[in-house]
Nucleic acid binder design. Sequence first.
DNA 1: CGGTTTCAGTGAACGGTGTTTACGCAAGTC
DNA 2: GACTTGCGTAAACACCGTTCACTGAAACCG
Lengths: 241, 241
Amino acid sequence: MTEATRRERLRAETEREIRQAARALLVDSGRDAVTLRAIARKLGITAPALYRYYDSHDALLRQLCDDICADMAEALYADLAAETSGQVNCKVRAVCHAFRRWALAHPQEFALVFASPRDPLGADQFGSVFLQLAGPLIASNQDAKHVDEEVPAALHEDLVRFQQVLMGAVSEHGVTVGDDVLNLGKIYHVIQSWVRLYGHVALEVFGRFPFAVSNPEPMFDSMLDQMLEEIGFHEDDPTAR
Amino acid sequence: MTEATRRERLRAETEREIRQAARALLVDSGRDAVTLRAIARKLGITAPALYRYYDSHDALLRQLCDDICADMAEALYADLAAETSGQVNCKVRAVCHAFRRWALAHPQEFALVFASPRDPLGADQFGSVFLQLAGPLIASNQDAKHVDEEVPAALHEDLVRFQQVLMGAVSEHGVTVGDDVLNLGKIYHVIQSWVRLYGHVALEVFGRFPFAVSNPEPMFDSMLDQMLEEIGFHEDDPTAR
DNA sequence: CGGTTTCAGTGAACGGTGTTTACGCAAGTC
DNA sequence: GACTTGCGTAAACACCGTTCACTGAAACCG
């Protein structure tokens, strides 16, 4: 059956338990509670044993971040799949809502990934997950009216590079679009939208709006309306495809 | 001269040195380097002595946050004062730029205040500092065209509460305006702008844009243009006052 | 099968942390 | 001068990440 040796199976099982224990500690008691000794205690082993699995406490936390991002990606895909209407703007809206919902439901995880100083100058993990999902959707909106002239000239070079990334993500999903559809203007607006989405969700998760907002959801919704409008989706416009 | 007793002077001096040492450690080596023992070492005393000044390590960090915010407020006021043109939109722009500049120049401080889980449901400190400064400016823009009907009805109650806060800040600056000038629509757009400002600066300071941006400044500038437009400032429009 | 290698896990130790406690000792008070 | 106040210390406690020499069982090999 299992072609893996007994040792390998046990090792894989232990590693699974380590991640699980670390995650539980994070969720229950926050980032600072995720200590090697606490994890070891949960497994009934001693702390140094964990060094057989991870080089350091830091490496373990990094792994935890990756796990969290993978989980979020899964949740986002699931929520997108549940949106069965053919309308693209509904799908985009669904993904945005899914991102907010996930962040609110997993504040400790969000804070950890958000506040972890990853590989310097590396890409944001949330951004990668989210945009590689939303990118293809937005690209498939054929009738957006943005032209490249709208965006600051100084950004052209960076945007072209990001355009390549997004087109790669799109083609991985089967579809291929020309750079006339996913043009610089559209990409620019996508990033502007990401800034707003990120800002709102971070402020809301951390409870940091400049005044007490009793129910931030309508604020989020109306922001979404405006964002989608800017990207090129229009309320009454079916844009089915 | 000093009507304070010798003991009080020494105590005040030591407290100043503690804050200074803590700040230096934060700036030089990051949040985790701000330990009681490291601070004590800098002062040539022992760690428990610090408990004569702060109840706990946490309380000291909180004090540090407050100091940082006060410093930022000072920097923002200074930059605003340096903007001598009478045009209000220039002043708003100056404060926004000052916020970004400060955050980029003080990444460790920004990260600490940003990531510190303050009093739950309390107001954001950056938001308070910034908006109490920008609020009066924006309020003084008489000819904004927003009407209350634009904002989601569910937000009315919260916005009215925030309106009171802002009007208080305005009147503290000498001016008084009616709630017809600082109406709900305008306040709503101010908050939307804060979300974008916050999102952009956080992403930039943490190096977390979804792709490598070689020079984020033009992106910030063009975002600012769009924000000011939405709030009710127009490019060609002097709006002097 | 027996010998050997591999490796998960242990226990002790080192240097670091926040925090508490009992104590000395100088400054202020009456 | 006696008494109180309060800053600072040393020692201790319970944690933490990390290293190192070690055990013992699993895996491998001739």
